Simulated scan of single mutants.
Amino acid sequence: MYVVIFRATVRKLDAEYSAVAKRMRELAIDQFGCIEFHSVTEGVNEVSLSYWPSEENIRAWKDHPEHLLAQQAGRERWYQSYTVQVAQVGREYHLAT
C-alpha cells in the first residue's frame, strides 16, 4: 500500500475549490482505486492523505485530464505552495473498540 501526502499553504479557498476537491476525491476513489482519502485545513495549512494499492494507480490519477486541470487551478488560484510525497506503507497497526 502507498500513501500520498499532500501539504499546502493555502492562498485562498472558495466555493469552486470545495466542489473541485470533492470531485477529485470521488474520482480518485471511484475510478482509480484510492482506498481512503482524508483532508484537513487549519488556518493556511492543508494536509491530505490518500492511500493507494500501487504507484501505477497514483500515476494514472495524477495524469487524468480533470486532475490536471485541478492541479493547474491549485497552482494559479488556491495554493501559495505545496509539497507532494509518495511513500510505501511498511507497517500498520489498529485499535478497534
Results as ranks from 00 to 15, higher is better:
A15P: 02
L49P: 00
R77A: 07
E16D: 07
I58Y: 05
W78N: 04
H94I: 12
F37S: 12
G43Y: 02
E36F: 05
M24A: 05
Q31S: 14
L13N: 00
E42P: 01
T83E: 10
C34N: 09
R75V: 04
K22I: 08
H94Y: 15
A60L: 09
G43I: 02
V40I: 07
Q88E: 12
Q80R: 15
V84E: 05
K62V: 05
E76C: 00
A28S: 11
R91L: 14
E66R: 13
F37N: 12
E56N: 08
Q72R: 08
E36R: 13
R75N: 12
E46P: 00
S50T: 12
A70I: 08
T41D: 02
L69P: 00
R25H: 13
R91S: 13
S18C: 11
P65Q: 02
Y79M: 09
A8Q: 05
V3C: 10
D63S: 11
L69Q: 15
Y79P: 04
V86A: 00
P53T: 09
E42A: 13
S48P: 05
R11D: 07
D14H: 06
R23S: 07
D30L: 15
A15D: 14
Q80D: 15
T83H: 15
S39D: 06
A15I: 00
S18Y: 09
E92N: 03
F6Y: 07
E56P: 01
L13I: 03
Q85A: 15
L49N: 08
Y79S: 01
M1S: 15
F6S: 00
G43W: 09
E16Q: 05
I35E: 11
A87Y: 05
W78D: 02
S81I: 10
V89R: 05
R23N: 03
A96Y: 11
E26S: 13
Y17W: 11
I29W: 06
C34F: 07
H64D: 04
R75T: 08
V20Q: 03
S50A: 14
K22Y: 11
R7L: 08
V4I: 13
H64P: 00
I58V: 08
I35C: 09
N45Y: 05
A73F: 10
T97Y: 15
I29C: 03
R11P: 00
E92G: 03
S39H: 09
Q88G: 09
T41E: 06
V44Y: 10
K62I: 07
A8K: 10
R59N: 10
R75W: 04
I35N: 01
L13Y: 04
V44T: 12
H67M: 01
S18W: 04
F6L: 06
E66T: 04
H38P: 01
D30E: 15
R7M: 10
R77Y: 08
H67P: 03
Q80W: 07
F37A: 10
A28Y: 04
R25N: 07
R23Q: 01
A21K: 03
I35P: 03
W61E: 00
Q71V: 04
V47T: 10
F6G: 04
S39T: 14
A21C: 09
E42M: 09
Y79N: 03
L68E: 14
G74P: 00
S18H: 12
E16W: 02
